[in-house]
């Protein structure tokens, strides 16, 4: 339970711009939202215990650990042990939040999540960070393009994909009133902000930014921001475009999906995830069972492993940025 030391300095002999791992927080204030959400909960009297598996600088939990060393557990590189122990902690009245890369949390620990967290109905909060292809050239081992699919298939597990740091912080605050275990799917902390610090979060409710008769884009996580930007461009070209931030993927806001399908000719889902089993699949399941005749197009990673490249290059390559999403829409209507 030792707190991290507060080393963030680099030697004065190094030129500006050089950095080291422990400086990630200073370089990357978006990472603070996880810790800030947990600090909000502690202030509200929630018995938070935060844990990580040797990634406290990557996920920013170092800030929480320094503030509340007695509420922080370092598990080391043993993700499965961490998830199972979090479940044990929850039985003692603690409110455990455990964080690691989404690829390890959702896939390596899938069975621990199913058996120890979901089947037991314990209020464990799982934070899978650096989702999708956010880790760029670190490669497929560090990408999570299956986590929504896998987590969504586990009975009793809530799946949330905040669009940015403030929404993550709001969702963490709101989790105090949510009895189910939760998988939070978050990105790198460098994502452009969609929301202000006053954003509120409601589990199970999508956020309708706008409505349109030609098209509704339903996006989640990192894709909400580019979807909104793409919609602006498309409107200037004459399209009637709506955008929904489907921040809770399970339980899905079925009514909002049905309303979009009734209103628009096309529903386009956009996700940084395999189109199999993810947000697009969840929306497809609803539309297939509804009387609407809208066309559905799923946009995301099409059942493949990502190329190697820096993240922004990958987003451009896979058309998961605003120009790419707009191009996909133009092709649909061409």
């Amino acid at each position: 339970m030792s707190a991290a030391s507060a080393t963030t300095a680099t030697p004065a002999t190094l030129a500006e711009g050089s950095w080291q791992y422990r400086g990630l927080n200073a370089q990357n204030p978006g990472l603070d939202h996880l810790s800030d959400g947990l600090l909000d909960l502690v202030e509200a009297g929630v018995p938070v215990v935060a844990g990580t598996a040797d990634l406290q600088y990557s996920n920013g939990l170092v800030k929480f650990a320094q503030r509340h060393p007695d509420r922080f557990v370092q598990f080391g590189i043993s993700e499965q042990n961490m998830v199972s122990a979090a479940a044990g902690l929850a039985t003692t009245g603690a409110s455990p939040f455990v964080a690691t890369f989404a690829s390890f949390l959702a896939l390596l620990c899938c069975e621990q999540i199913r058996m120890d967290v979901a089947y037991t109905k314990l209020p464990v909060r799982l934070i899978g960070h650096h989702t999708g292809i956010a880790l760029g050239f670190y490669g497929t081992s560090h990408h999570a393009t299956e986590d929504i699919s896998v987590m969504r298939a586990i009975a009793g597990l809530t799946v949330v994909s905040p669009a940015d740091g403030p929404q993550l912080r709001a969702a963490i605050r709101a989790s105090a009133e949510w009895p189910e275990p939760i998988y939070f799917r978050t990105s790198r902390g460098r994502d452009p902000q969609v929301y202000g610090d006053d954003v509120v979060f409601e589990f199970g409710k999508g956020i309708e930014h706008s409505t349109g008769t030609d098209l509704t884009i339903i996006a989640c996580g990192t894709q909400v921001h580019p979807a909104l930007r793409a919609a602006e461009v498309l409107r200037q070209e004459g399209y009637s475009v709506g955008v929904i931030d489907m921040a809770t993927i399970k339980p899905l806001d079925v009514e909002l999906v049905r309303a979009a399908a009734d209103r628009s000719s096309v529903v386009l889902t956009v996700e940084e995830h395999n189109v199999l089993g993810g947000l697009g699949a969840a929306v497809a399941e609803v539309m297939a069972e509804s009387p609407s005749r809208a066309r559905l197009v799923r946009h995301g990673i099409h059942d493949e492993y990502s190329l190697i490249a820096p993240p922004t290059h990958l987003y451009a390559h896979y058309r998961l940025d605003a120009p790419g999403i707009a191009a996909v829409v133009r092709e649909i209507f061409a």
Partner: peptide, 23 residues
């Protein structure tokens, strides 16, 4: 604690012991 998948229980108990000491 529920069980059935062999190998989890000591971790579950570890969490309980941590929680007991914290409280």
């Amino acid at each position: 604690f529920s069980s059935g998948s062999i190998g989890h229980a000591l971790s579950n108990g570890l969490g309980m012991a941590l929680g007991g000491r914290m409280s």
